[in-house]
Design a protein around this nucleic acid. Structure first.
Lengths: 224, 224
DNA sequence: ACACTTCCGAGAGCACTGCTCTTGACACGG
DNA sequence: CCGTGTCAAGAGCAGTGCTCTCGGAAGTGT
């Protein structure tokens, strides 16, 4: 119990768990979430299907692990982009937007897993909530850092529509809440629409359009 | 062939086709798209599974029919809302936004089918493209009707990022293109985020927040 | 060193899926 | 009235998630 130095069994278990996850990630990228087959994962690892259940109690549990991984990955991409940017707050903002889009392009199946329609019969467990907010935290920090005093604050009842926790966690002025949530929505809406084919025959130059939207959103949250 | 007066066989075929579609709609609402089972549909209709293949060559064909139906339904909801509104262009705009949201709340599975992640291994056939644009057409028409002269037009290269067909089909000023596409994205992004649970513990008062976003989007497309 | 407990992988099996193919019955048109 | 074309049914294939049992291996306490 809680041994600091892992036993051979524990190490073997960790290795197998990681092998299963690696195979699941491959499967996910190749066939998508809904077609992810536990038996195929088992085959790839060299196990029989029932053995996998010793590591994940169900297919949904496996998916949950992948979902958290994906949230963390896109959050890390956003944080890395912010860390790498050294210009104005507006430039950081655009850099983070671009990073999220680039991550989605590179990992479409993971993106669909977390921002597409939920897998049928699958209810996202609360475990995923903290990981889901990382991109929002990054954007909120940038907006607060670079915000000019903006006279066009929303009415009080609109401000109250956003949970106080959000402003607190993000460290932003509560009056920025609605605009921040809206910008966050627009970011993932734009990335999703492009990825899921809604911009087919509509948006010709995706980069130019995306940068324009990112800039407009920056203005909307008060970045000069 | 192409008989004006349908034979008994043709009528029977049309009846069975409609019965299958009705059962599929029920299934879709109950278990979602990815779990829609052709055998379950057949059972509900009172057929054996293989008989369904006389009417739809594959499960994907059935889904395609449902997708087009869903696009048409949400488009009709938007058009009806516009027709019923008799105030300013801004009021019409907000009414259409609300109608889309209400439709999505009433038909979450259909909404997920068309605006969620694509069903795995399923590529949306071109048949769905015209139906997909109906909501955009309604919004574009309202924006054009009520637009005030707006000095903040985007740069030429941004305008050129949007397909000319779009402005032509929507009948809007091409300079409005980027803002219109962005507003369209924000509408479905917001509705989708609410429906798929991303606003859990984030947006408390959904109606107030939604109306605020709708109004901001109206301003962004130049509605006074 | 031996016994005991825990863990793990394999295999069989259940109920389900999409889809194909064959077979027999029925309705329609010449 | 009889050939033709359409239809539903049934069996079957390969696959799925998941459960249960069983034998062996690894770790633990005496």
């Amino acid at each position: 119990m809680l041994s600091v130095v892992p036993t051979a069994r524990e190490r073997a278990r960790a290795r197998t768990t990681e092998a299963i996850l690696a195979a699941a990630r491959t499967q996910l990228a190749e066939v998508g979430a809904a077609a992810l087959s536990l038996r195929a994962v088992a085959r790839e690892v060299g196990l029989v299907s029932s053995a996998v259940y010793r590591y994940f109690p169900s297919r949904d549990e496996l998916l949950t692990t992948l979902i958290i991984e994906a949230y963390d990955a896109v959050g890390e991409a956003a944080e890395a982009a912010r860390a790498a940017a050294d210009g104005t707050a507006r430039e950081s903002w655009v850099a983070v937007w671009r990073a999220v889009r680039a991550w989605a392009q590179a990992h479409p199946a993971q993106y669909a897993l977390i921002y597409g329609s939920p897998v049928p019969g699958y209810a996202a467990p609360p475990d995923t909530l903290p990981a889901a907010g990382r991109v929002g935290v990054v954007l909120g920090a940038i907006a607060t850092e670079g915000r000019a005093d903006d006279p066009s604050d929303p009415a009080d009842h609109v401000v109250a529509a956003i949970a106080p926790d959000v402003s607190a966690t993000l460290g932003v002025d509560p009056r920025l809440g609605p605009a921040a949530v809206s910008a966050w929505t627009l970011l993932f809406g734009t990335v999703g629409f492009e990825l899921f084919g809604q911009y087919e025959n509509v948006v010709l130059d995706r980069e130019t359009y995306f940068d324009h939207v990112a800039g407009a959103a920056a203005t909307a949250v008060g970045l000069p």
